[in-house]
């Protein structure tokens, strides 16, 4: 318990350091752009493919349940709302933690084990500004973009299953959706959620990497911990954010 609190505290300290050093790393914008490539662009494949399949499966399931109640036209609404509000941000964040989060932890952990971070410090270059902050911002920027892509592709996948395959009416599919999905309350809240997940996931990955004992065993353990902690944080934060968004 004490250990958890200690980790939370030093995680916050790292967060503050990143914020303070961000000005310095923004002057070298290509560092952040490079990291967006590694965290965002390279995660696109897994995000798009999973989004597509999640949308298809969801449409299939929803269609058969809704047909029992005589309203298969609602497939589009249920699909869009569940993907935009929940699955988009949450599944994207979980995949991101597995794909990009572990990569960040392993990379930072190995740089530390290899004394690269120490070497940088001795060259009067701040590792926080040079290595950590660009990765942080790349994660925070990539996550909402990936989540929005996931939602869009998911809805398209659902459309392909519902309309041509299951025979839901094309017009009803979209118009029911448009009547129910609100831009501010659903789409913007979804973006806000994924932003928060982006901060949490990237911070956890960076902290675990930074905190990892400089050994092979330490780094592998830290990588595992990144996935576990990120997943729990995402699901916990999702509940808090959802309840805030639904009550306000």
């Amino acid at each position: 318990m004490i250990d958890r609190l200690w980790r939370l505290g030093s995680g916050m300290r790292l967060f503050m350091l990143i914020i303070v050093s961000s000005g310095e790393s923004f002057r070298r914008l290509h560092l952040t752009i490079r990291e967006i490539y590694f965290t965002g662009v390279l995660s696109m494949q897994i995000i798009l493919v999973s989004g597509f399949f999640v949308g298809m499966v969801l449409a299939l399931q929803m269609f058969y349940v809704l047909r029992q109640f005589g309203s298969p036209d609602y497939t589009g609404v249920v699909l869009a709302l569940s993907i935009i509000r929940e699955l988009g941000p949450v599944v994207t964040a979980l995949l991101f933690a597995g794909r990009a989060g572990t990569a960040i932890t392993a990379e930072i952990g190995l740089m530390k084990a290899n004394e690269e971070l120490s070497a940088m410090e001795m060259m009067a270059v701040s590792p926080i500004a040079r290595v950590v902050a660009p990765r942080f911002w790349a994660g925070v920027i990539s996550m909402p973009i990936l989540a929005v892509m996931f939602s869009m592709v998911g809805i398209l996948g659902g459309y392909l299953v519902a309309v041509p395959m299951l025979g839901v009416d094309d017009g009803a599919f979209w118009s029911q959706m448009q009547a129910q999905v609100d831009f501010r309350f659903d789409i913007l809240n979804s973006v806000i959620k994924s932003l928060v997940f982006g901060v949490a996931c990237t911070m956890i990955a960076l902290f675990e990497g930074f905190d990892a004992p400089p050994t092979a065993e330490g780094v592998s353990y830290a990588t595992t911990r990144t996935v576990v902690t990120s997943s729990l944080a995402i699901l916990g934060l999702d509940f808090i954010l959802t309840s805030l968004m639904l009550t306000v």
């Binding site: 004394e115 120490s118 410090e121 009067a124």
Partner: peptide, 16 residues
């Protein structure tokens, strides 16, 4: 001060 120093680390510590 560090700008006046150069350090060779035990394992080289090259950026991989």
């Amino acid at each position: 001060l560090r700008r006046k120093m150069g350090m060779l680390f035990q394992r080289g510590a090259l950026f991989s």
